[in-house]
Structure formats: C-alpha cells, structure tokens
Simulated scan of single mutants.
Amino acid sequence: MRSSMAKGFEIKFNKGWEKDILKAAQKGVEDEVRKSQALLDRLLDRYKGQPVSTVKPVLLSEWRRSGGSMTDAEATDWATLISQGTRIELRL
C-alpha cells in the first residue's frame, strides 16, 4: 500500500503493517500499566493505615506526575483503599 502525502514524499506500508502497529501500541499500554501498578504498590506500602486525607493528595500528585489523571471521586476511592491496606490491581 502506498500513500502520497506531498510531491516527492512517499510512504510505503509493508504487508502486515496494521498488525505491527497494534503490537507496538499494546506493548506501550502494557508498559504504562506496569509503571502505574508499581506506583500504586509503592503508595500502598508507604501509606496503608494512614488517613485518607494524607493519602489522597500524595496519590493525586504522584499520579499526575506520571502523566495520569483521575477525578476527585476516583482519588477518594483509591486513597480509601490504600488507607485500608487494600491493593489496587490494574488489569488490561
């Protein structure tokens, strides 16, 4: 498959290119899930037993620093689980 974007510029797509892109995207998602899981596990180790009011701002700060976002309600729910010593398990 060929696509011509501009005069003198051509992109060639090899057979199976869609599969290659999906495979690369899947790996990227899996890497992000691993990093996020490690972050949540670190927070659990450090903050279990601490009040939600202590856990929540740290959770939000660390989550945002890693490029994530969550609603206030999600942050409260997750901070509550961490405070209670419950492991949050991310799945694909």
Rank of each mutant, 00 (worst) to 15 (best):
A38P: 04
R2A: 09
S61C: 05
S66N: 11
G85H: 03
M5N: 11
T86M: 06
G28K: 10
D41V: 04
A24L: 12
T71H: 08
E62C: 01
R91I: 09
W78Y: 14
K15P: 07
S83C: 05
Q84M: 09
G16E: 09
E62M: 04
A79G: 05
G85Q: 02
R2H: 10
G28P: 02
G49I: 05
K56R: 14
D31L: 10
R91Y: 07
D45V: 05
V52A: 03
V58K: 14
M70V: 06
S4L: 14
A6D: 10
L39E: 06
R34A: 13
K23T: 10
S69E: 13
K56Q: 08
M1W: 06
A79H: 01
E89N: 08
V33W: 03
D72V: 08
P57C: 00
Q50C: 05
E30S: 09
R46D: 09
L44W: 04
R64K: 14
Q50M: 06
D20N: 12
R2I: 12
G16R: 08
V29M: 10
Y47H: 11
I82Q: 01
A6Y: 07
R2D: 14
K56S: 02
D20P: 03
G16W: 05
K15H: 09
E32V: 09
E62F: 00
S3Q: 11
E10T: 15
R64L: 05
N14D: 15
V29W: 10
F13L: 15
D31S: 11
P57K: 02
L39D: 06
D31R: 15
E62Y: 04
V55W: 04
V29R: 13
K12C: 06
N14E: 15
D77V: 04
E30N: 12
L44F: 07
E74G: 03
L60P: 00
A25F: 05
L92D: 12
A38C: 04
E18V: 11
I88L: 09
K27W: 04
N14P: 14
I21H: 05
T80P: 03
K48G: 01
M5K: 13
D31W: 04
K27A: 13
R64F: 00
V29S: 08
G8T: 02
M70L: 14
L92E: 12
T80A: 08
E74V: 05
S61P: 02
L44G: 04
T54R: 11
A75N: 02
A75V: 07
V52S: 01
D72L: 13
W78N: 05
G8V: 05
S4K: 14
W63Y: 07
A6H: 08
L43G: 03
T80L: 04
K15M: 06
K56M: 07
G8E: 06
